[in-house]
Design a protein around this nucleic acid. Structure first.
Lengths: 194, 194
DNA sequence: GTCTATAGGGAGATAGAC
DNA sequence: GTCTATCTCCCTATAGAC
């Protein structure tokens, strides 16, 4: 039965390599991470990685693409509320969930993206743009009174607030992810004196 | 006369190495930067770097220490205003000035700090703590009504807003640094609807 | 203070057996 | 799909001349 095979390892080799790579890239950055480390984490030898990915660069690009996919599906899953403030908070919660609850793929965009070789960064920019446009649209809905020209800056400030939490927020600490999402949303809308 | 010597190169070898290193580390991260690149930028050979610094790690630590020094002296230079909102804005402007107007040393803390070997990161933490305490004290003055328990999070959100500008702000663009400081301060205090 | 030369190690990538 | 073995390259760091 299928359950029996799960007692061995539920993930195929490619996925184990991808998971190990994401974790290493997030912790150490691109250049400091070696294929030998990734292979050891995945339980294989370095040369075997090339059966799944043509190069170290392609492996990192695959990690980043998966990260965007996690963010986009979280964003789409947040379309449940109707009050405008709650709609925003639901999406902030979704983005934070992608960062902290769905593996290191999304976090790679925050901590490791700028350590990647330029060719990898440039290849992933169009995919990131798509996600940013989702947020532009959302901000236009939630804050119709905000001048369109100020929307991009507002989005960048919100991204800065959400993504910088990766440096200090501990999901196992006193503050829950729900509370963090509420805090960031209210701060974004009304400032510290909220 | 002294001026005549300046027509050759006003910086001694050690300072040229330090400047070149800061720029490379900011752009490429720690591991991707080689001593050969730094030496070439500074106009010397790689082996000569060891006359000024005992190791690549020590060189990066020196860059980070200079970065903190720039931030601290900018912070101290901002103690000129008295209205509480202006006092905060003056310090935000000082921090942004340290990031964008005084070479790449401060920026290294934002873009390259997490690419450093753990031993370098740990060595620099006490120096960073000192700077963060300056901001805790300032926030206590400017926002006396803010619950003390919420101050650390407020500071982290403000740091996130200021430091994330390194990814998108262009000092040569339409928005000036003064305007950016005002925008971030008002957003921090009152939110987007300000 | 900078050079040349090089030691010693480890990186990404490839070839071919199983 | 994974292995072993290895190629080639380039890294940090050192030694000693000038």
């Amino acid at each position: 039965m299928a359950v029996a095979t799960l007692t061995h390892d539920p993930l195929d080799g490619r996925q184990r390599v991808l998971n190990a790579a994401a974790e290493r890239f997030v912790d150490q950055g691109y250049a400091a991470t070696t294929l030998r480390q990734i292979a050891a984490d995945a339980g294989i030898k370095a040369g075997s990685i090339y059966h799944h990915f043509p190069s170290k660069e392609a492996l990192f690009a695959a990690v980043l693409e998966d990260g965007i996919r996690v963010m986009e599906s979280a964003f789409e899953g947040a379309e449940t509320h109707d009050r405008s403030a709650d709609l925003l908070q639901a999406h902030v919660r979704a983005h934070l969930g992608a960062l902290f609850e769905h593996g290191p793929f999304t976090a790679a965009h925050v901590t490791a993206f700028f350590t990647a070789p330029q060719v990898v960064r440039e290849a992933i920019v169009p995919v990131r743009d798509r996600y940013e446009r989702l947020w532009n649209t959302l901000l236009g809905q939630v804050l119709p009174e905000l001048e369109p020209l100020r929307r991009p800056v507002a989005r960048l400030l919100l991204f800065g607030a959400m993504n910088s939490t990766i440096e200090w927020f501990d999901p196992a600490g006193d503050l829950s992810l729900d509370e963090l999402a509420q805090l960031i949303t209210e701060h974004f809308l009304h400032g510290v004196r909220a």
